[in-house]
């Protein structure tokens, strides 16, 4: 082996960006970019992310869209007459889709722990909080891929989309905040886990109640009182209603800004609590 005996000149010093915010942003950017690069190099992750909401639209929406329109109008209550069920369902599916995206972030974190990569990260001057934030925002970003694909699918199914630019901005922001909030929540409660099965179990546990105890699939006015109580604080419902007002009804109003503020508070709270929990409990292996 000749390499070790050959002379080599390395640059004498490497420049450091410092311990402050610039340095932390550099670390965050590195880890965040890694999350996205790895995702888009794995087509199956994309397929799984996209297929589930698409199936809801196709099967669930397809089934109920066969209900005669007069009965449907009565069922959907406050919706303008003639609103098809698919139009009603699309914002709901986009919102419930944000429930599951944290699962992929949690699985990616567990993979890093089990294959030792978390050690490689944490043996550098990178804080656990930075690792957590990169994972949470990475998985939220990955989940947003659903939005344009779902829109295209809905258009293909014959849904008419309404709304103005400001409304759409608010609607997309609401979905982003919902995704960030649930991704942050998911990663926080799996921070100390190293078991592959944990994210799936938790996902099953939280997805069903939060999906149905919201206005995502049906109008909440048909629910029993206890489900309405859950729906009244469920961020999935707020996001679904915001997007529905914009996309389906074309009626962006002041109450939608309240929904948006609520979703922002949810995301900020989840990130803050999650960062504190992960800083303490994120396991190295």
């Amino acid at each position: 082996m000749s390499t070790a005996t050959e002379s080599v000149t390395l640059p004498a010093t490497v420049v450091r960006l410092g311990d402050g915010r610039v340095g932390q942003m550099t670390q965050f950017y590195g880890l965040y970019a890694r999350e996205l690069v790895k995702t888009f190099r794995n087509p199956w992750v994309i397929v799984i992310t996209l297929v589930q909401p698409f199936m809801w639209l196709a099967f669930f929406g397809g089934m109920l869209s066969q209900v005669p329109s007069s009965e449907l109008d009565q069922f959907l209550l406050h919706a303008p007459p003639g609103t098809g069920y698919l139009s009603f369902l699309l914002p709901g599916v986009l919102s419930t889709g944000m429930l599951a995206i944290g699962m992929f972030g949690a699985m990616s974190t567990i993979q890093d722990k089990r294959f030792g990569f978390m050690k490689r990260i944490l043996i550098t001057p990178t804080s656990k909080a930075t690792v957590y934030l990169s994972k949470a925002l990475g998985s939220a970003t990955r989940g947003l891929v659903q939005i344009p694909v779902m829109m295209a699918a809905a258009l293909a199914f014959g849904v008419t989309l309404h709304g103005n630019a400001l409304g759409w901005l608010a609607s997309i922001s609401g979905l982003v905040l919902l995704g960030v909030g649930f991704s942050a929540f998911f990663l926080a409660i799996t921070a100390s886990s190293t078991d592959w099965q944990t994210p799936g179990v938790i996902s099953n546990f939280i997805t069903m109640p939060l999906m149905f105890a919201s206005g995502a699939m049906f109008p909440t006015s048909i629910y029993p009182k206890w489900m309405q109580d859950i729906a009244s604080v469920n961020p999935v419902g707020f996001s679904a209603q915001l997007s529905r007002d914009v996309m389906t009804y074309g009626q962006f109003s002041g109450s939608d800004l309240t929904y948006l503020a609520y979703l922002a508070a949810f995301a900020v709270l989840m990130i803050a609590v999650g960062t504190a929990l992960a800083s303490r409990y994120l396991k190295v292996e």
Partner: peptide
């Protein structure tokens, strides 16, 4: 640090692994 079990990100190229290490170590140059 060099691990017993060789820990690299297999989905990234050699250069990308170095890029990530540079980011984590906050290297500018």
């Amino acid at each position: 640090w060099v691990a017993a079990e060789v820990i690299l990100d297999d989905d990234l190229s050699g250069w990308e692994n170095l890029w990530l290490q540079a980011k984590l170590q906050r290297l500018g140059d």
